[in-house]
Structure formats: structure tokens, C-alpha cells
């Protein structure tokens, strides 16, 4: 009996070490663009943290809104102060599941649908986005592009500047995952 337990524990440890079912990066790039003909509004963060669980086909993203860098310092201040209210809502998050089939062992590009909940400015909305994934043994690459409407997340834009900011904000994400070591 004792031997059995020992064997079980041992196998568990071995399984733990060998099974790379989670991939991780803390420097994924998120870029957003809400430019109009009157104003260039572009910002980028390369400090997004993200995990993929290839057993469950789950993806999670988290980024501090203060990590977005703008060309204009004043714009960055207004983004955090007036729109995202970064002191009250420091993080933007996404938790989702890949709902189309994906074969993690192949190293071919796959186009998948990811369904999940995007939370920012304290408001959660369900979204479905299209992502391109290149699986690999020691590296997974993922890119996506989608649009959000600021008002859907309770971000109010005063009418005086409404025409200067795009109605839909385009968000691009670029992540290179490596096996997760807790």
C-alpha cells in the first residue's frame, strides 16, 4: 500500500514536470488605435501578462492601463485620468476559451474563434474575437485584432471631443508564449 502511494506521488511529480500544458508571457504587446482625421490617438503597452492552457483551450490576459504609452504626455494623462480612471480600475482583463478546434501538436497556423469576457473600466462584456495561433512545442505565437466601443464599457466621451476620437477603437494584440514555470 505504501509503495502504491509512493508510486502515485512520484508519478504525479513526474507528470507535473513533464506536462507543459500552460504557456505564459508577461511582455505581450497590446496596441490600440482610435485615430480620426483630426487626431492621431495611438498607444502601446508591451507589459501585458497572458496565459494559455492548452488542455482546456483557455486564454487569460491582464494589463495595467497605466502601462500604455502615448506619443503625447498630455494624452496619456487624460487617458488614465478622464477615460480609463486607472486609479479606480487599474487593470483591463480578458478571460476566454478557444471555441473552434485546434491541434496543439501541429505547428501550422490556425485561425480560431475565442469567446470570452473583456473587463475594463470596471465593466464586463462578452466578446468573440478571431485570433491567429501558431502552436509549437516550446513556443506559441498568437495575434488578434478586434474592435471595441468605449461607451459599451461605461467610458463617456464628452461631445466637445467626440468627433476627435474614433467611434470604435481597434485593439491589436501580439503575444509570444513560452512554457509556464510557476
Amino acid at each position: 500500500m505504501n509503495k502504491l502511494i509512493l508510486y502515485f506521488v512520484f508519478s504525479l511529480i513526474v507528470f507535473n514536470v513533464q506536462a507543459q500544458n500552460r504557456f505564459f508571457t508577461k511582455d505581450a504587446k497590446i496596441n490600440f488605435n482610435s485615430s480620426t482625421s483630426v487626431e492621431d490617438i495611438v498607444a502601446e503597452s508591451n507589459q501585458a501578462t497572458t496565459l494559455i492552457d492548452i488542455d482546456k483551450n483557455e486564454i487569460a490576459f491582464s494589463v495595467l492601463t497605466t502601462s500604455f504609452k502615448f506619443r503625447r504626455a498630455l494624452m496619456e494623462e487624460h487617458f488614465n485620468e478622464n477615460y480609463m480612471e486607472s486609479v479606480k480600475f487599474p487593470k483591463a482583463k480578458f478571460n476566454g476559451k478557444i471555441i473552434s478546434p485546434i491541434e496543439w501538436k501541429s505547428e501550422k497556423v490556425v485561425l480560431v474563434d475565442v469567446k470570452g469576457v473583456l473587463t475594463m473600466h470596471g465593466v464586463s462584456n462578452e466578446i468573440i474575437l478571431k485570433a491567429q495561433i501558431i502552436p509549437g512545442k516550446n513556443k506559441i505565437l498568437a495575434i488578434t485584432e478586434f474592435k471595441v466601443i468605449p461607451e459599451a464599457f461605461g467610458i463617456s466621451i464628452p461631445s466637445a471631443v467626440r468627433d476627435k476620437i474614433a467611434k470604435e477603437v481597434t485593439i491589436k494584440i501580439d503575444a509570444a508564449y513560452t512554457p509556464y514555470q510557476p
Binding site: I5, T50, L51, F61, L64, E77, E81, N95
Partner: peptide
């Protein structure tokens, strides 16, 4: 053991992510 290992496995990605994000220095802006 099974229970414990189960708990480790079922820890969801969201809380794992929270663990990975180190506390940041926040500057008082504006």
C-alpha cells in the same frame, strides 16, 4: 494527495495571472 493535486490543477488562469503580476509603482499623476 488527490484532492490537493486536483486543487493545484484546477486553479484557474485568472488567479494564476494575478499571482504573476508584481506590484507596480504608481505615480500620482495630474
Amino acid at each position: 494527495i488527490v484532492l490537493f493535486s486536483n486543487q493545484v490543477w484546477s486553479q484557474d488562469l485568472d488567479s494564476l495571472l494575478d499571482k504573476e503580476i508584481k506590484p507596480q509603482t504608481i505615480y500620482a499623476a495630474a
